[in-house]
């Protein structure tokens, strides 16, 4: 039987206490978005390489080992390889371009290679940037940062705080429910349930086989919800009431500098006309 919890990487946080870790989450979120824009908007190989190097630098600045950041990548590798091959072969050669090889609609051309090279680098850059951000920011910081950034919207009756709380509770119960699902799978398998042994084409049997998992999972989740609501009420939670906040988000000059550097970097990458 599988260890479900092993697959869940959401909320993995690696406290190394680096300067990136200590950034004000609001600024970190903004810098993160800018960085992602820079990584995803350019089709130039050189621009993508520059972003990739910058991503590695950010990772190093956050003191996160490369191995750790790439961990989540392993399951995706087959899909990435298949997509690369498809992109390479199905890419239409540009007019007047040398075509190295052709067979029906398949062809191999320099512009195809260029495109694939740019996308592969882009893919790795984005993975590194996302990892750097999530591994250096605790979930609560992300939700609190988001709450603060959305706060101006609450003047337009947008429930910024409630949304942040909902996200927090959701993230809080992901591991709990995953553990529970694992436990239920094992329990029902112990009673002879044929979980994971029914062939794929027997759809009805497969769906019926899920009921013993889904029903108790929902019933238990609802019960948990009820108890949690009671526990929150017992601790004085009243929806809509003004609350104070246990977060010391104090921006420093460094945060502003980081965001400005990111912004300048992004504009530079997008504005400079790189040859390839």
């Amino acid at each position: 039987m599988e260890e479900l919890s092993r697959r869940i990487t959401i909320g993995q946080y690696l406290p190394t206490g680096s300067t990136i870790h200590r950034m004000d989450p609001r600024f970190k979120l903004v810098a993160f978005v800018i960085f992602i824009v820079a990584a995803s908007s350019s089709y130039s190989v050189i621009a993508n390489l520059i972003v990739f190097i910058a991503a590695i630098a950010a990772l190093a600045l956050a003191k996160i080992p490369l191995r750790f950041a790439l961990n989540g990548l392993v399951p995706a590798i087959p899909i990435v390889v298949i997509m690369m091959v498809f992109q390479l072969l199905f890419h239409q050669a540009q007019k007047g371009e040398v075509v190295w090889w052709q067979w029906g609609i398949l062809n191999l051309s320099p512009s195809g290679v260029h495109l694939v090279a740019a996308s592969v680098i882009k893919f790795f850059s984005i993975v590194l940037i996302v990892s750097t951000f999530t591994l250096s920011t605790a979930l609560t910081e992300i939700t609190r940062g988001l709450e603060q950034l959305l706060r101006p919207l609450s003047k337009m009756r947008f429930p910024a705080h409630e949304v942040a709380l909902i996200v927090t509770i959701m993230l809080r119960f992901v591991p709990t429910l995953a553990e529970e699902a694992e436990r239920l799978m094992k329990a029902q398998a112990s009673r002879g349930a044929a979980i994971g042994t029914v062939p794929r084409w027997q759809v009805v049997r497969r769906v019926r086989g899920i009921l013993p998992l889904i029903v108790p999972l929902f019933v238990n989740a609802l019960r948990r919800g009820e108890q949690l609501a009671l526990a929150m009420e017992a601790r004085g939670y009243v929806p809509g009431l003004t609350r104070s906040s246990y977060s010391s988000m104090r921006k420093s000059a460094r945060d502003v500098v980081y965001v400005l550097v990111c912004l300048a970097f992004c504009i530079g990458v997008l504005a400079i006309p790189f040859p390839i």
Binding site: L139, T168, R172, Q227, L228, Y237, L241, T242, R243, S244
Partner: peptide, 23 residues
């Protein structure tokens, strides 16, 4: 089923936040 937050110290602060206790 009685922990709200994803981090221990934030959870302890939850009740205090509800009563508007200053930071």
């Amino acid at each position: 089923n009685q922990m709200v937050s994803t981090i221990v110290e934030d959870d302890v602060a939850f009740g205090l936040e509800n009563y508007g206790v200053p930071y």
